[in-house]
Amino acid sequence: KTYTFRVRIVDEETGEEKEIEVTAKSEEEAKKAAEELKKKYPNLKVELE
């Protein structure tokens, strides 16, 4: 079973919002993916929905 999570990304500089879908095998995995995004884009606000 896989879970699909919507991750909302807000670029703090431009105020631009993007939504991406993360497919993960567990909620834990999705959280890790969101953390990776935060590391990659430090000025983005990442929200897991």
Rank of each mutant, 00 (worst) to 15 (best):
K1M: 09
Y3I: 04
Y3F: 10
Y3M: 06
T4G: 03
T4A: 05
T4V: 12
F5H: 01
F5D: 00
F5Q: 00
R6A: 04
R6E: 00
R6D: 00
V7I: 15
V7S: 00
V7M: 06
R8A: 02
R8I: 12
R8D: 00
R8P: 01
R8S: 04
I9E: 00
I9M: 08
I9K: 00
V10E: 02
V10G: 02
D11T: 02
E12R: 10
E12T: 12
E13I: 13
T14M: 02
T14G: 02
T14Q: 02
G15D: 02
G15I: 00
G15A: 02
G15M: 04
E16D: 06
E16T: 07
E17S: 13
E19W: 15
E19H: 14
E19V: 15
I20Y: 10
I20P: 00
E21D: 05
E21Q: 10
V22P: 00
V22Q: 01
T23S: 10
T23P: 04
T23C: 13
T23K: 11
A24E: 03
K25P: 09
K25E: 13
K25N: 14
S26Q: 01
S26V: 01
S26C: 06
E27M: 14
E28A: 10
E28P: 04
E28Y: 10
E29D: 11
E29I: 03
E29M: 06
E29A: 08
A30V: 06
K31S: 07
K31Y: 13
K31V: 10
K32Q: 11
K32S: 08
A33N: 04
A33S: 05
E35C: 10
E35K: 06
E36T: 08
E36C: 14
E36D: 10
E36V: 09
L37Y: 09
L37G: 01
K38A: 12
K39N: 07
K39D: 05
K39Q: 09
K39V: 08
K39S: 07
K40T: 06
K40H: 07
Y41L: 03
Y41M: 04
Y41S: 03
Y41E: 02
P42L: 05
P42D: 04
P42M: 05
P42W: 04
N43R: 06
L44I: 08
K45R: 13
K45S: 06
K45H: 08
K45V: 10
V46G: 04
V46H: 04
E47L: 14
L48Q: 05
L48P: 05
L48Y: 13
E49P: 09
E49T: 13
E49K: 10
E49S: 12
